[in-house]
Design a protein around this nucleic acid. Structure first.
Lengths: 165, 165
DNA sequence: GTCCGATAGTTGCGCCTGCAACTAATATAC
DNA sequence: GTATATTAGTTGCAGGCGCAACTATCGGAC
């Protein structure tokens, strides 16, 4: 926006902090969930998204966007989770090309067991040192960033008001 | 810190926005750099970190932390970049176990060519919709998050005051 | 009705990555 | 001095991921 070099370097610094914070926090959250519940963060993400969806089911395409995966990546991820019995595939009656991923009872149980670990981790490693005003700012700022994107996953993240899960 | 469910869900929402913003922005920055300079973002990151280091050189271990890679991952990354002539390996005289990665002339040139593309991308996709106050808030908030981590890469990100590059 | 382009999902393939094991060199204990 | 623990970096290996190609299905043009 401006050409002021001070402001540009501030933006660069912010971007670098952003990258580092992401890598660091995501890593430790994954490690903790893995250690205590033998579940990768990606699996948890799938479970949460399905749980929040009506009927505990979501089309593959939508789920792929929601969990930040390519469609092919999601196919394998769903393969692995279905093999463990946490989710199942179901044909879509309206569109015979479509497939639903649907949460199973075991999946719900796994989610309930994993959620406290994840929430604790977020509090401990992400928002722990932030006050309420910080968190509100962060929400607002990240929303602005995402509003600048036309990627479908941005719409999903902005559109669906998150529930407590 | 509080147990207020509203605040907890706010934290979760912030975390999700954070993940989505990261995936979306990192992806588009990488795509643009790849398309216009045939260079992955990881390579750019290595070049910047070396360029900022005294003598254009950094020990492998330090560089690995700076660019958010495992040591083994960095070994291969340096292999590829050295093969393209952008950096070179150099023995460390003080510690014969050690290796420096050092920027070559071609590497400097590649960095100079890539930087404007990267900076433009950050402005366009990350800070474009933010005002100066937002960027300052973001810096401050992310710094707080990283202060909660004892990972060496957090110290690097917080410690070295970023230069305009 | 028949085409034809677009979309949903899966599979072949190759790249990138981290973990654990390995070698080499250094620091510490005594 | 030697033995032991620690650290730097690399390599074997396997898993996870995206891209492009493929099949099946849908929707619109006519």
């Amino acid at each position: 926006m401006t050409i002021d070099p001070t402001e540009r370097s501030r933006a660069l610094r912010a971007w670098r902090l952003f990258l580092t914070a992401h890598a660091t926090v995501a890593e430790v959250l994954d490690e903790e969930l893995q250690a205590e519940r033998q579940m990768p963060l990606t699996w948890y993400d799938v479970l949460v998204n399905l749980d929040e969806a009506p009927g505990g089911r979501l089309r593959m395409q939508h789920l792929a966007n929601a969990v930040l995966f390519s469609r092919s990546g999601l196919t394998r991820l769903v393969d692995r989770m279905a093999h463990e019995g946490l989710i199942a595939r179901e044909a879509c009656p309206d569109d015979r090309r479509g497939t639903f991923a649907v949460l199973t009872t075991a999946g719900k149980r796994a989610l309930r067991r994993a959620a406290p670990v994840h929430h604790r981790g977020i509090t401990k490693h992400f928002t722990g040192r932030l006050d309420d005003a910080d968190i509100r700012s962060l929400e607002s700022i990240l929303s602005k960033v995402l509003e600048g994107s036309d990627h479908p996953r941005a719409a999903i993240a902005l559109g669906s008001p998150a529930r407590a899960d």
